[in-house]
Amino acid sequence: MTKADIAKWIHKHVGTSQKDAVTTVDAVLDIMRSTMIKGEHIKISGFGNFMLRDKHERRGRNPQTGDSMPITARRVVTFRASHLLKEKMNDQ
């Protein structure tokens, strides 16, 4: 499934025009992305939470050469699915 398929789904289930559906899917994802870039978590009830985790710097290795090198401190996005989504994935 791609953005285009989600737009088709919206067109079919909500009645939004194809063109507007494509625009709004992009708008929803843009809002979510910029929210996370600002450092804010996102909670979507019934779906899941997008959480930000701050990782400390640690020593890693270049798997190709085996050289030890530092992995800088960074922030990463993790997704925690709601139990409703997990149930939905396992009852079919």
């Binding site: 989600i6 789904w9 289930h13 909500v14 939004t16 709004t24 899917v25 929803v28 779906f47």
Partner: peptide, 10 residues
């Protein structure tokens, strides 16, 4: 629309 996005993904 927002509900539809997450319904479609689910």
């Amino acid at each position: 629309v927002v509900n539809a996005v997450f319904d479609a993904i689910s």
